[in-house]
Every structure is written in C-alpha cells, then in structure tokens.
Write a protein that binds this DNA or RNA. Structure first.
Lengths: 219, 219
DNA sequence: AAGTGGTCTAGACCACGAA
DNA sequence: TCGTGGTCTAGACCACTTG
C-alpha cells in the first residue's frame, strides 16, 4: 500500500486540462449554458498543444459536461454535469416529449418483438421506426438479426439516448414476460438518431428480478 | 500526401478505422479474447497516422468493444460488444462478486445517506469505501459535498461501472424513500476504481415512479 | 532488445457560422 | 473575413511487458 495523498504518477496533461475546465464549472465561474474558452484560448492559457486540448474537451463533451457547436463555440451543458457519468433526472416532461414523435408522424413502422433465451422471455421490444430512414424495415427478418442491428446496417446511427426507469408494467407486458404478481420491470426507452433525423424510438421491458443493465465508463 | 479535399466520403478516417476493426469482429475473424492488430500494424495496414488509429481504438475500448493492456496488446472484449452501448446481462453471478469485496475486507468505511430535494427523498445511498483509498472519508462533510465528489477529489477515479436493475426494495429502504405499496425502485450498483484498487461500492435506490436514468452516447 | 500502448507536439486543411 | 470546432499528420519520448 502506498499513500494516496501524494500522487506519484502525475496526471496526464489532457486530464489536467479537463480538471481545469471542471474546476471553473464547479466554482461557478462557468455557469450552465455559458461559453467556455475556445480550444485555441486553452492552448495559449495552459501552454499545451491543441490536440491535447481537443482530447480533453472531446471527452468532457462525451461525458455530458460540455456541448459544442462547430463554428460557434463550447458551452457548459444545461443539466447538472459535474457529477456522475449517468445523469439522474426528473421524469416529468421528458418521456412525453419522446413519445410525441410517433404520435405526430403520419406513417410510422411499428414492431413488437419478444426476445427469448431458452424459452424464458428476456425482453419485450416495442419499436417505432422512421420510414424515411429504413424504408425496408418491415421486410427484415428479425429472427436472424435484431432491429437495432438492422438499423445500424441500413442507416448507421450517430447518437443513442437511453432513459432507464423501474416500473410495474401494464398487464399485456406482464403476461408476455411472465412476471410474478409484484415483480418490477426494468424499462429502457431508447431513441436513436441517424444524422439529424430521428431513426427510431423503442421501449424495452425486462424482468427486473432476472436482468440488469451494465455500463462501464473510463474517466 | 493525403488529399482530404477530394475525400468525398462523409465518414472521418478514425471512424473508418473503427469500422474496419468492428467488421473483423462481426465477421468472426477476431473472436472474443483474441488479439487484434497493434496500433502500428493498423498504421501500416490502413496508411493512416498513429494518432488516428489511437483515437479509433481508444473509442472502441471506451465503448466496451476492445480492451487493451499497455505493453501487451489489444484484445476483443469478452462480452458481446458489437451491439448496444449498454449491455444487457444475466444477473446471476455478477452481483455476488461485487459484494464480495466489502465482506472480505477487514475494515471498510460505510455510509448510509438519504438525499432530499425539497423534502422529497430522492435517493438512498448505501456506500462502502476502501480506507486505503480515502482514509479521511468518515471526516468529510457530506452536507456540502457528495461522497462521489469527495472521492473524486481525494483519489481521482479512473473507472466507474454501473449495474442498473429494477426491484421492490426491502422495507427499510421503502420507508426512507416513502414508496407507495407496490412502487418499484430503480437500483444502481456503482463500483469505482482508483488506479487498480477498488475505491468504493455503492447501492443507490431511487423511487421508480419519479426518477429515471439518462445516458447519451454518440457513436 | 523489441514491441506495445499512453501521451504529446506543432503544425496543417477543412466546413461552418457570425460579422 | 475571421474564429470556431473537426480532423489529420509524422514524428517523438515514456513506462511497461515479454522474450
């Protein structure tokens, strides 16, 4: 065991750049929505190369701390971002917003698939697909390829958003999953984008007692 | 040398490198656990710079497709990795394994914290902390800083793993969260590593009907 | 000693948005 | 036009593992 207080191996430069920016956000110097230094400004300020700054900022963007617009600038993300890799958010308006698309669109592909493993229901997948993105969706053979894999092939997805919650699902879902009376379900709502168009929106129900989600993040 | 101006394909080079490796995995040319090309080999094979290869491989590692060991090589991750950013896994052995550490260690710091927002309980946080990583943990003021933030300060975390599931929590937790009779909870088990040592293991319970997790992934 | 990943530099060209 | 992010190069030094 060695002392944790004194850091023998110094942080890599890009990590110091990340901490520098994070510190400004934590201290309130940079409020959510505010613009942060441009990459070139950080280069001059911290005397590091732009590739190092770029990596630092890119990782902060991916982890949700910052957002950036090419040609405009880099900004502190609106939601509280300094904490965990996964954001805990109030459920209020977000889900309605998600559901709005399928309801508003005239023609939408819809599939309801139950996935089994050894005759045990694993997942009920209720998916809506944008016909403009995957016009042949209904002709695909979902016994040999999952809808997600199919979508990845015909229109590479650029962005995926997951909303995860726990719920006691409605009766039809409970029956499909063969849930016990008060067994909870893990519900995932997944929205995918292809370029700027929304490609699909899926609601996935899993038996809460038998399955779990796992995510690993290296910081 | 390289004419980027005449490059009509929309995909950046590092994305092509990623697809090149992904294709070899999907086709079975590279099986889980197998070694893939080194960065220098990919540089020679694809005629791109090493920084471009490095970014491609680094992103595949972060998304769980590959894993790498400095001085040894890069390998296809064991678990099914070509599909979703979040992996759905069987619950069987994993959680026991997680719980093994606090049970096996002689001295472990333990905190049980209930987080409120406007007098409404948001989260019950049951956390075990490795004293070797944060010897002053019990002296921290968790009214002004969250345990996760405190750990980030005293021993920067290098890796975070989340396991998410739905459950009807035990009665003490139900009481703390003021859950309705059959309201489900969203349970997160979070393990963090500092360098190679496990820093903490926390179980977080959230009211299933009022809160959700959100994760966004750009591919 | 050779190979590997980890990091970093000091430039460069591009597309895009704002002025 | 100018600043922004997005990408890419062709080197480099380092720590580490393996033979």
């Amino acid at each position: 065991m060695r002392a944790a207080a004194t850091d023998l191996t110094p942080l890599p430069l890009y990590a110091k750049v990340k901490n520098h920016v994070l510190q400004q956000i934590r201290s309130g110097e940079h409020r959510p929505g505010a613009r942060v230094q441009s990459e070139h400004e950080l280069v001059r300020e911290l005397r590091v190369s732009r590739m190092t700054v770029n990596r630092a900022v890119r990782e902060l963007v991916r982890s949700g701390v910052l957002s950036r617009i090419a040609g405009v600038g880099t900004f502190v993300a609106d939601f509280r971002a300094a904490g965990h890799p996964l954001q805990i958010r109030n459920i209020a308006a977000v889900i309605r917003e998600q559901l709005a698309l399928p309801a508003a669109t005239r023609l939408v592909f819809h599939s309801l698939i139950v996935h089994f493993e050894n005759d045990v229901p694993l997942q009920v997948e209720d998916r809506y697909v944008n016909p403009a993105v995957a016009p042949e969706y209904l002709q695909a053979d979902f016994a040999s390829i999952t809808p997600h894999e199919y979508l990845m092939e015909v229109a590479p997805l650029r962005r995926v958003e997951h909303v995860v919650r726990a719920a006691l699902p409605p009766l039809p879902i409970r029956r499909l999953l063969k849930l016990k009376p008060h067994e909870a379900a893990l519900v995932i709502e997944r929205t995918t984008w292809s370029k700027s168009a929304r490609a699909s929106f899926a609601t996935l129900h899993h038996p809460g007692g038998r399955f779990e989600l796992r995510g690993v993040f290296d910081i």
